[in-house]
Design a protein around this nucleic acid. Sequence first.
DNA 1: TTGTATTTAATTATATACAATTTGAAAGAG
DNA 2: CTCTTTCAAATTGTATATAATTAAATACAA
Lengths: 234, 234
Amino acid sequence: MQDGFQMNMNEFLPLRDVVFNTLRQAILTGELKPGERLMEIHLANRLGVSRTPIREAIRKLELEGLVTMIPRRGAEVAQITEKSMNDVLEVRRAMDALCVELACDRITEEEIQALKQACDAFEEAVKSKDVKRIAQADVKLHDIIVRATGNQRLVQLVNNLSEQMYRYRFEYIKDFSQHERLVEEHRIIYESIVKKDKETASQAARMHIDNQEKAIIHQIRVDRENREKRIKNL
Amino acid sequence: MQDGFQMNMNEFLPLRDVVFNTLRQAILTGELKPGERLMEIHLANRLGVSRTPIREAIRKLELEGLVTMIPRRGAEVAQITEKSMNDVLEVRRAMDALCVELACDRITEEEIQALKQACDAFEEAVKSKDVKRIAQADVKLHDIIVRATGNQRLVQLVNNLSEQMYRYRFEYIKDFSQHERLVEEHRIIYESIVKKDKETASQAARMHIDNQEKAIIHQIRVDRENREKRIKNL
DNA sequence: TTGTATTTAATTATATACAATTTGAAAGAG
DNA sequence: CTCTTTCAAATTGTATATAATTAAATACAA
């Protein structure tokens, strides 16, 4: 944690937004762990700004669901429980189904091309067995579909839900046995969008989430057991 | 606007939350109109607090989608365009369908009783022709269904989406010709949830939004035309 | 030893002060 | 008369100072 997250000062943004992005990233990558306290002075010193932009960033993280506020005690990184992740996934399943259905109606020729490229790129990434690259290719592919809906609000909501999953996604993608399945699912989704076959597309999208759900919930249980063991050994 | 919104200081809450609730309410009731600037000093003077809690409240309203930030210019009440409302309704339709489906699976006996009461209360409210009372009864009824899903995240998201519609909902409920239809739709939803008939329930929920959509979009067009006329006359 | 006050330190909540930027109006040039 | 430039006022962005609250440590009594 010594030389952990730092601010990307290059950006031409208000400090609160830079801080917001920095903290968000640190939470998603697990650099700031669930339950860890976010103390204003420490963060301010560490990032080299005053407390004001820190506080404003925390207010936004709060509504984003990444931190929990305890009155007069400050913010801490939100815990992920099996229940809360189930809630997220349940909503995400419905939204992803909606996304591909809308995409069937509205996707443009250019977006179809981009989607094809993204599918190919994902397949390449899987072959390379580079986990980080796979994750990035996956995000890109989904992003194209979500944006093809032309629905700004939906884009924002799906991004927020994905965020909650990213904290566990790495574990999921590390499971190489699932990679072929992922490639296959992506191909089905791509093809049914091209054919405007909403029914198949939305079924595939739901299945895609179902599979991730199993892996993520499994990982949450493993994490909890490890935590409990650690406490017992003290 | 002279003696408009005021703070409810009785609450035992941080000032930022009191300010947040106050501003939110003022936006939803239309007291603060779309496009109106939210200037920190003015609000601070008006509500009798310093700029800090005002700023923090605005950060939350921003993520909630009720205000738009313009860099170095501050916040203004978010405009509602036909497009943005369509986006909201598209998502809301899918979420409401999800809500009733989950409710079919998970609703408890007590919640079914409460739902029945809420349906009856709504019918009574319609008979009274008291618009405010009708709106409240409607909110209560939907709230029971949404909470019956047992999904916290879904509750939060649906509430946020409803919020966007409240700004236009009054116009909708003022249209007395639609009241019988509303009562009928509520009854269908109630009965299909009791029967655990997901298909019918989700169809009815979608239909319910479709009908509101027509009225709300119509109202948005009327508002825009009025605005354009007013500008022309200057 | 344990439980309870009391004090102290740490931290958040709020207010204020200062800096940077933008906007609009007035002044001046073409 | 119109366009540009400059300047002042208003407003946001950031930093710091003060107040209020909480958590922890210590002292003291049962």
